[in-house]
Simulated assay, not measured.
Amino acid sequence: MLAATVMLGEHGRRRAGLGDEFWQYRPAHQGDSARMIDWRRSARSDSHFVREREWQAAQSVTLWVDPARSMGFTGDKSRAPKADRAKLLALALAVLLLRGGERVGIAGMAQPRSGRAQMLRLAARLSGDAAVEEYGAPVTDGMVSHGRAVFLSDFLGDLTAVEAGLGRASDRGVRGALIQVLDPAEEEFPFDGRTIFESMGGTLRYETQKAGDLRTRYLAKLAERKDRLSSLARAVGWHFTTHHTGHPAQSALLWAYAALQGGR
Rank of each mutant, 00 (worst) to 15 (best):
A220G: 01
Y135D: 14
E163D: 11
A252H: 07
T216K: 15
V139W: 03
E163Q: 11
P248A: 13
L219Q: 05
R194C: 01
G167D: 14
F155N: 10
G173L: 04
D192A: 15
A235M: 09
Q209R: 13
M143N: 03
T160Y: 04
L159A: 11
L152M: 10
L156Q: 13
G128H: 11
V236D: 03
D154I: 08
D213Y: 02
H146W: 12
R175S: 10
P248N: 12
A256Q: 04
S251A: 14
S199R: 02
L182W: 01
T203P: 00
W238M: 00
V181N: 01
R225Y: 06
L204E: 11
R225E: 12
L182M: 07
T195S: 10
G212V: 09
K210C: 00
L204W: 01
W255R: 08
V181D: 04
L156N: 13
L166C: 12
G201K: 00
E133L: 06
T140P: 08
F155L: 08
L253W: 11
H244M: 04
K221N: 10
A249R: 07
S251M: 10
D129Q: 14
R194K: 09
R234P: 01
R228G: 00
V162T: 11
G142W: 09
T208G: 13
L254M: 15
L204A: 05
L232N: 02
G165M: 03
H243G: 01
G201L: 05
A131Y: 02
A223I: 01
P184D: 15
H247D: 15
G173F: 00
L182R: 01
A211G: 03
H243W: 11
V139E: 15
E186T: 05
M200L: 14
H247N: 05
R217G: 15
R215Y: 00
H146R: 14
P190V: 08
M143I: 02
T208M: 07
A252P: 08
R225L: 03
T160R: 13
F155C: 09
T216I: 10
A177V: 06
A131P: 03
L204P: 00
A149H: 04
Y206I: 02
A233I: 08
M143A: 09
A169P: 09
E188T: 12
E224W: 02
A130F: 05
L178Y: 06
F155V: 12
G246N: 08
P138F: 04
S231Y: 09
F240L: 05
G237K: 07
I196K: 06
F151E: 06
H239T: 14
L166P: 05
S199I: 00
P190H: 08
E186M: 09
T140N: 06
L222M: 14
R205V: 07
L214W: 11
F191L: 10
W255H: 11
E133I: 01
L178S: 06
G167N: 10
S251L: 07
L222E: 14
G165K: 04
L156R: 09
V139F: 02
L222W: 10
R172M: 14
A130K: 02
G176M: 07
V174M: 05
R205C: 10
R205G: 06
R215F: 01
L254I: 15
Y135R: 06
A256R: 04
R168D: 12
A211H: 02
T140R: 03
V162P: 03
V174Q: 07
M200E: 15
L159V: 11
E133D: 13
S145H: 12
L222R: 13
E224M: 07
